[in-house]
Amino acid sequence: MTVLRIDSLTKTFHKVRAVDEISLEIPADCVFGFIGENGAGKTTTMRMILGLLKPDSGAVWVCDEKVRFGMTPTNRRVGYLPDVPQFYPFMTAREYLRLCGEVSGLTPTQVKTRSNDLLELVGLAKTKKKIGGYSRGMKQRLGVAQALVNQPPILICDEPTSALDPLGRKDVLNILTEIRGETTVVFSTHILSDVERICDRTALIHQGKIVMEGSLADLKARHGATGWHLEFADPDSATSFAELMPTLVETKVGTEVTLRPGDKDEERAILRTLADHDLVPLRFESLAPSIESLFLEAVQ
């Protein structure tokens, strides 16, 4: 089932095409990484999905309902976490979630249950102080909670980790991983390691256009060969191993051997050969293409 469909979306600011004929279909229950450098058009696209910005042309459907600029009933199915979420500093987290729950149409009982669950999820259940005294990481976690208050089928996060320290990033990524399965997460970022860590599918946006799209595994398979890199303690072990697997060895330099197995059987054969001949490598590393290399390949 498709939860979000974007059809030929275009937006121009002062003669610059920020978003250029973008079309996308995002299936339910996946974590979708929307990757692009700063200024690529990620935020502009997200703002059009949320009806906060009027597209020049094209359309967006959220759960088969068309998004209209300004009047946004479709937002009842979407949770949104801005890159730097802003809150009312005079409220506590619980009061803020109550406001968000009530304006989303939840009943008082639902508001209470959801607030408790979400504050527990984001680790703010014990905090009594007003939001004005929160750190950036706490605000980002509260941002996730407010976005999920009405259990939306889609959660859109605009660079949720880019302004955080490593600990804050880890917290937010963990939360996004935890909600996988309940909510489709659309997640824009320029931090590629975050995408590798939590996304199932991804689209690369460059100068307003989508240059690559698909599941992470497919993209890696399509764009670059996979392989294994082994390092042994001494050159003799490396040589013996290379001689045992001549068809798979791509290179052998000193103590290091690179192999390109064609399928899973050949990968298993590597492990069997090592075990049968009592060869223990110091390092056994996958040579799958990184998202970074895919990104660089796509934008060049």
């Binding site: 906060l52 949770g79 801005p82 009312y88 406001l99 968000c100 304006v103 941002g143 407010q146």
Partner: peptide, 15 residues
């Protein structure tokens, strides 16, 4: 100026 409306508006609240 503070950007506090974004969270509220993206809940589908009539403006």
């Amino acid at each position: 100026s503070r950007g506090t409306l974004v969270n509220i508006l993206t809940k589908g609240v009539p403006r």
